[in-house]
């Protein structure tokens, strides 16, 4: 019980703050809670498959093949695969973090993990279709053409800027964060 409260203390604090806010501005407080409730239901709908797939990936795909296709020295193949997997995803960006922890556990290179994160955030295929409809083809295409090289450059820069020690620590942490052993 105490453990539970400790784990969820951030949630409880923010929840209490919204309660306080409601005293001063009822409308905003109620609106905030109802929007949160709606996003929570949405999360419960979208997120379970992501975590089931993550579990299946962890159990079935051997580390050697992940290293071969997406690890250090996987070259263009690894870049394209990371772009593709990130683009085929669904769900908010924060759902990509646990998946990337499993990627790191399986030996995917840091730059490819970052490309995957970039693709998940900007080139998700269903979202791009939606963007075409709402904002028009010129907007969506221009953004894609700028974003794809952009996320690759950012990923490579991040991999360069992290020292070997820092990246090793991130990988060690991923073992714990991913899905345990």
């Amino acid at each position: 019980m105490v453990n539970m409260i400790k784990r969820y203390r951030g949630f409880l604090i923010v929840f209490a703050c919204i309660g306080l806010l409601s005293i001063f501005n009822r409308d905003i407080g109620i609106k905030a809670i109802s929007i949160s409730a709606r996003s929570f239901v949405e999360m419960l709908f979208i997120i379970p498959p992501v975590f089931v797939l993550l579990g299946l990936l962890d159990v079935w795909v051997p580390r050697e093949s992940m290293v071969k296709y997406m690890g250090e020295g996987s070259g263009l193949k690894g870049v394209l695969l990371s772009l593709f997997i990130g683009s085929a995803a669904a769900g908010p960006l924060y759902a990509a973090f646990p998946v990337s922890a499993v990627f790191m556990k399986k030996g995917v290179s840091f730059s490819n993990v970052m490309i995957f994160i970039g693709a998940w955030s900007t080139t998700k295929i269903p979202m791009v279709f939606f963007e075409f409809e709402s904002l028009g083809a010129p907007f969506a295409l221009t953004r894609l053409l700028v974003d794809i090289p952009g996320i690759i450059i950012i990923a490579l820069l991040l991999a360069k800027l992290g020292s070997r020690e820092e990246i090793r620590e991130i990988y060690e942490n991923a073992e714990k964060m991913g899905s345990g052993s």
Partner: peptide, 15 residues
């Protein structure tokens, strides 16, 4: 736990 905090923040922000 972190997801839930994010969701609450999003609620306040969109409100």
């Amino acid at each position: 736990p972190q997801f839930l905090v994010v969701i609450l923040f999003v609620g306040v922000m969109l409100a």
